[in-house]
Structure formats: structure tokens, C-alpha cells
Design a protein around this nucleic acid. Sequence first.
DNA 1: TGAAACCCTGAAGCCACTCCAGGGTCAACC
DNA 2: GGTTGACCCTGGAGTGGCTTCAGGGTTTCA
Lengths: 154, 154
Amino acid sequence: MRIGELAQSCCVDADTIRFYEKRGLLPPPQRQSNGYRSFDTQHVERLAFIRHCRALDMSLAEIQRLLDAGSHPDADCGDINALIDNHLDTLRQRIASMQALEQQLQALRSRCGEHRAVEACGILNELTAVAIGSVSDGAGVEIGPGADDGAGER
Amino acid sequence: MRIGELAQSCCVDADTIRFYEKRGLLPPPQRQSNGYRSFDTQHVERLAFIRHCRALDMSLAEIQRLLDAGSHPDADCGDINALIDNHLDTLRQRIASMQALEQQLQALRSRCGEHRAVEACGILNELTAVAIGSVSDGAGVEIGPGADDGAGER
DNA sequence: TGAAACCCTGAAGCCACTCCAGGGTCAACC
DNA sequence: GGTTGACCCTGGAGTGGCTTCAGGGTTTCA
């Protein structure tokens, strides 16, 4: 099966498949005489697994760990459980902070009902006032969800 | 005020301040004779504003739009309202999809209570089975929140 | 005097792709 | 035989919001 066919069967972009191969998530497929990739059913299953995990919002590094675990069937599955638990914890924290954010934004939005001059806009005034207040507090500001997803460990 | 002092007063990394300057969110400060940046209170307020908006998870582009609006005090504030409304919508959608995800992950986690051999691990088996099922369906898999935040417009 | 803390610039790295340029290959059609 | 269009290849750059690094200069304090 060529890359286009695989892409279609898993609803993935061909570029994404090449990307997974380069990252080592998919084993390098055989090549036809013209250099085209030739995938087999193992690749299909593996790609589907990867996409399913991605749909559960796992990172490629986490998926790699699952794939590694899968290739040691006799090992203990504690790592897998820990991975999922960890993932769930992070997710729940993110949901909580996004809900808090929603409250704040909703309160902010209620500051300006209709169109006014920018000068009189409750939203902009509120944003400015809170920002200035936080400086004179010396409190600083916590950056919300998504912005810093604990990615860079270096 | 030098960059370190500004950084501390807003709880921001000095690198982040240089980054905002490069991106045009902060106006270029004056320079001392040795080349060090010299910030004034306007910079402090502006930086605090930016950080506050970032804490509300706005993108730098959105913040730029707010700053632009702020510098035209006589204009109509409809744009600002629309921006916040839009932001709220996106946020609510993300929360909903993350909650759905939480359900799925919780169900998955309940497949394996304690330590077993990987081979017998309910989590891994479930992941594999669902993935293979979705291929034979020809259904493909939807990628969840965060992964594709409508970034690339090009 | 020397060490530590601060500052500078420019570039590269992170994540998970996506898109592009500039080419090759292949089948169908005229 | 030529052309068109769909597919494939590689390598590199771009996305957002920073962070880290390399390799220097400056200031401050003991």
C-alpha cells in the first residue's frame, strides 16, 4: 500500500505519516523500485494506534512509551497505568483552570454590553485597571492553561 | 529601570520582555550609554497589561488588537467585544472537548486496576482494539483539543 | 583584584505538525 | 509521441510563545 492509500484509510495527512516515520514512531517501510514507500497491515495498525492515542491528547513521547511497552509483553504494566494516571491528572488540572478562566472572561465581558467609544469600554478599562493593580501589588500574574504545557524539559 | 527590575516587578522572564519588544508588543525602550535598556512606567503598565491578557489565555495577536484599540480611544469598541466573545466561545468548546476526553480516559483507566504483565493489560489491549476497529470502519479518528488550535493560517 | 550578578545579541530548540519548492513517476487520454 | 494530472520524493521553513544557549561585555560587591 502506498502512502496516499494509508493516509486515506487512517484519515491522516501523508506528511504526518512521513513525520511519524522520521520520529521513529512508525518503522521505516519497504521501498518500491521507484523509491515509493510500501506499507503493510502492521503499519496500518500502528498508525491507527498512534492516531487513537493522539485523539486522547497524548504526546508523541507518551505514545512512544506505550509502543515500547507493547513490545515487551512480559514486563509489568505499571508504567502504562502511571502514564494514564498522570495524563488524567494534567487534564483535570487544565479543565479546572480553564473553567476559572471562563468565569473571569464572562465577568469581563459583562463590563461592556453594547458599543461605546473605546475610551468608555468597560472591558478595556477593567483589563487595564487589573493589570496596573497587579503591578503595584508586586503580585505578578499567573499565566493560564495551554500557555505553558510543561513541555520544555531541557 | 533596567530589564531585570522590570522583569521582577511583573514576574516575567527578562527574555520574555525582549521577546515582546521584538514582536512589537512593547515599544523599544531608551538605551543607557552602555546599551542597557531603560524602561519607564509606561512600559511597566503595558507589560502588566500583556501579562494579564496572557493569563486570560489570549494570544499575542489578540493582545496586539486590544493594544491597537486602546490607542484609538474615540473609535467604537465593538471589535473588543467581539474579540472577547470569540475567545469565550473557543474556550467553552475546548472545555467541552476536554471533558469528553476525561470521560474516555477514565473509562480507559478502569480497564486495568493493578499491575499485570503488559500482555494482559486492559489499557493497552483496549487502545489497540479501538484503534484497529476504527481502521476497519474506515472511520478514522478525530484529534482532540489543543492539538489543532487553529493556528496555521498561511 | 576577582567573583558573581547582571546585561547584550543572535540563533536554535521545544511541540506536532503543515506547507512549500523543486523535482521524479505513472497512468490515461488525444 | 506528447500532454495532462494525480501521485510520490526530499529537505527546509513556518506556526506560537516562549526558553535556552553561546559568547561576549558591564557592574557591583567583598
